[in-house]
Nucleic acid binder design. Structure first.
Lengths: 209, 209
DNA sequence: CTGGATACCAAGCAAGTGCTTGGTAGGCTA
DNA sequence: TAGCCTACCAAGCACTTGCTTGGTATCCAG
């Protein structure tokens, strides 16, 4: 149970515990150079302690990523579920889901980066089988919205939904590779531009058809 | 000189040398699990020999990727240069460049995958500094075509070219993650669909403007 | 002032890493 | 049949990996 979240003492110090600090440091390194290519000594060095001392706070290197990814996924799906449950049109829901995803890139940059580059590798371990499950739910949500949009007439009917899904998914998440939080572009700015490019391509009534 | 390509004997046997076989095996493994996460023993096992025997054919593990990436880049730029030198319109050139890139995904799947996931890491070594140079040339080619397209009136003027470039670049190359050569979709099929989605978004005369 | 919790250090182990070394079997050529 | 070349094996070296163990300093509650 890596993501129980009740590990630290109840009278918790200065706002963020040492444990959370270490987790944030690990997240940054995992995101930068990948999970396997980050050693526990790298993390310890960055934190100013010895590698063995990490094991006072965490069971293993694996449990660190586990906690990072699980927490992130849970929060992301709180957004997705709320959007899905709303009574907006498919196209509006699709836009909201894209915006929520760019928000996630802004607020959980490291976690998204880790998920993008290491999820496939991690999913080969039983412990991370929930990643496969989440991925399936994700695909169902997005393709469902695309199909509903086609059915409602908001989106073009001459589309290969499976291919558009991959196109859409990749463009959104791959942005984590170049997007830097704190720069001049907010996640909302990027989402606006992306949606403009995307929707004026897949929205119905194109002048080229 | 990793990519000299005149290493094997002149009276060459059965069409592909043992060396080329081993290189192809290594390429597949690098693409699948990353360069650093592939051990020389993995490669040797897949080839049915011992790890030490690899060093009869290659200097080092590094020189294997080096040869793979350098060969691939050289071939890719033969296509790009021909397109750039033609007298087609910017938009037509852009389409050709996208198609050539999808062809590369089809014909050099492993190499593209390696480039996508390991170029950033490899570029930290002096030996692979040519990757940075190629990347710069690539950005100049693509953004140049976008700007020329805007200037010629073929592409919408209300675009952030730098952002569209990243959008375009990422969608094309990230396809290597899911595209499988030999499936029902040819690279040309995928290119057609991608260009349709993309251009009817960024082409001038959108009904939503 | 005692007892327990927190946060760390110092040292090291077993497994795995890229690569080297010295050698062998078989084929081709002169 | 001698000499060389290609392709490989068997063993192991120096180093790095994730993780363990036994211990110490500091704090706060009773």
């Amino acid at each position: 149970m890596p993501s129980a979240g009740v590990a630290t003492s109840s009278t918790n110090g200065p706002e963020t515990s040492r444990r959370d600090e270490l987790l944030a440091i690990a997240a940054g390194l995992f995101a930068e150079r990948g999970f396997k290519n980050t050693t526990v000594r790298d993390i310890a060095d960055a934190a100013g302690i010895l590698s063995g001392s990490l094991y006072h706070h965490f069971d293993s290197k694996e449990s660190m990523v586990d906690e990072l990814l699980d927490t992130f996924q849970t929060e992301l799906w709180r957004s997705y579920d709320a959007i899905e449950a709303s009574d907006a049109s498919p196209r509006t829901k699709l836009e909201a889901v894209v915006r929520a995803s760019f928000e996630a890139i802004g607020e959980h940059h490291s976690e998204v980066a880790i998920f993008q580059s290491d999820a496939l590798y991690l999913a080969t371990f039983e412990r991370f089988s929930y990643l496969i499950e989440r991925n399936r739910k994700f695909r169902e949500l997005w393709t469902g919205l695309l199909e509903a949009g086609v059915a409602s007439g908001e989106l073009r009917a001459d589309l290969d939904v499976a291919l558009v899904y991959r196109f859409l998914r990749d463009t959104v998440w791959v942005a984590v590779r170049w997007y830097r939080p704190g720069g001049s572009l907010t996640p909302a700015d990027v989402a606006d531009q992306y949606l403009t490019i995307l929707l004026e391509g897949i929205a119905k009534g194109s002048p080229h058809a």
